[in-house]
Design a protein around this nucleic acid. Sequence first.
DNA 1: TATATCGATATACAAAAGTATAGTGCTGTA
DNA 2: TACAGCACTATACTTTTGTATATCGATATA
Lengths: 122, 122
Amino acid sequence: MGKKVTFSEAKSCPIQFVLALNDTLNVITGKWKLPIIGTMLFNKKRFSEIQKIIPKITPRMLSKELKDLEMNGIVKRTVFDTVPVTVEYELTDSAKALGKVLDKMLEWGLQHRETTLSGSND
Amino acid sequence: MGKKVTFSEAKSCPIQFVLALNDTLNVITGKWKLPIIGTMLFNKKRFSEIQKIIPKITPRMLSKELKDLEMNGIVKRTVFDTVPVTVEYELTDSAKALGKVLDKMLEWGLQHRETTLSGSND
DNA sequence: TATATCGATATACAAAAGTATAGTGCTGTA
DNA sequence: TACAGCACTATACTTTTGTATATCGATATA
């Protein structure tokens, strides 16, 4: 855990940096990942709760994305031995730290809209 | 231009924030956008130069992505009236400011690898 | 008995993103 | 004349991503 590296330095020692950048992209790209993460920002959620919050997502996609996010260390899945089973999803600490990234993305996006996109509405 | 907003606040006033986040995602997602931006980080480049730096990209994709990036205010395209025509691509100021976002993404990615992915190599 | 809830899975399909390969019009050089 | 370089475009295709719709097995409720 150590020295802070910047994007510009990436050119000199790319492989692990490329992988790290890629990891970050993987957990925020796609139509549903951010919406799903958003539902869990302040509380753990159950499958059906997420479905209620994001009505347009199909169970297939929600299931797939949750598995994906779990495999990537973004959500923790806890199964309770009730009948029928109860399953809770919550963000990992690492996922919560994503806020810093999203803040920067938001900041850039707003700046970009102010400066260069002013006029176009897409 | 003004007050700084955080991701957490987005819940209270979402629409424009969602759009801004989306803009940011749009300019960094896809297989080739970051590699292409990378080629122009320190100098303007011509079509064929980018092709040499990223040999695996097809002219179709490079053309498409450059158009896309131009439309989104990330690259500036300058045509010189030579024969045959010379075309130069360079990053806009806004694009250069993306470095801050990428730095955060890199930082998170490295942290995430250190803490939660240690063990898995994908 | 019929229907609803829970957390999903199965199958088939459509749309978006990316690849492969060839060709364009122009000119300068061998 | 033949070929190479420049900045692309055209057509057809494959892969990845997302959608639509139906269903599972267990239980609780009407």
